[in-house]
Design a binder for these strands. Structure first.
Lengths: 137, 137
DNA sequence: TTGCCACTTCAAGTCAACTTGAGGTCAAGT
DNA sequence: ACTTGACCTCAAGTTGACTTGAAGTGGCAA
């Protein structure tokens, strides 16, 4: 079992030591000991941190990620919740695709003001609908 | 020019009045007058708000959105910035697609712990790479 | 053995995007 | 004329994810 201290871990991940300490406090990672005051981590912490990064990019909050990591330990994970999150992400993907196309359109649209461009107006109506739904929920 | 007061606007958009006042303070929208104390808006405020909603779903900050709205007025918008944002969103879409697939996989993967599942490990390696890039930037 | 310096803790600060609360005001109904 | 209720302002509070600062500590080089 290889170990790594917080300074090296910080250096290799690019995460500030303060962030690593914060993550430990939030139970996202855990030190397996100390060398003097200095935290020592098992090298599997890299995997944990990768998982944290993944979760963050999926829009999970740190406490959601912590819950997932914990459930992974107790091996009773909530598959329904995962599917729900996957669906949510899927919807988010569609929104982002429209937003991206909208931005690209605006970037090359010759209309003097976007508010006068029919395509843009259409996009906005779609966005408005999405907003209405989001508000309901 | 039709007008609408803040109560109706709040009711019709689902946004709390406090949020509308906040948006006004941030120059995202502007009242065209008052009826008594009560703010009055031109009905084109709906369009502004749709644009704000769109920008938010694209991950723009409110001040970025304000800048865009302003530039739209001065009719000199930064097309390069829009394309850059579109690219950023595109990358985000790819990340989310992987995350979604990862979640769905985990949801039906029979491995006792995800960390032992080869597919999951592969996904994590990809996420780790993305993180490394993000950190660099 | 004595410094040094990077670590440590713990509390407090920061930022965005709002929300909440206290105290004030105005138009409209009775 | 008076009350009511929804708005008003301005300051302060909230949440999540950290960062910063002050004061302390321990391993290692000289």
């Amino acid at each position: 079992m290889k170990t790594i201290d917080i300074a090296e871990l910080s250096q290799q991940t690019g995460l500030p030591a303060s962030t690593l300490r914060y993550y430990e406090e939030q139970s996202l990672i855990s030190a397996i000991g100390r060398r003097g005051l200095r935290r020592l981590f098992d090298t599997c912490v890299f995997q944990r941190l990768a998982l944290v990064a993944l979760g963050k990019s999926a829009g999970f909050s740190l406490s959601e990620i912590a819950a997932f990591l914990l459930s992974n330990h107790t091996s009773s994970i909530d598959r329904g919740a995962l599917r729900a999150k996957a669906d949510e992400i899927d919807r988010q993907i569609h929104v982002l695709q429209q937003v991206r196309d909208g931005l690209l359109h605006v970037a090359k649209c010759p209309e003097p003001s976007h508010l006068e461009c029919p395509k843009f107006q259409k996009m906005m109506r779609i966005a408005a609908k999405k907003q209405a739904r989001a508000v309901k929920h």
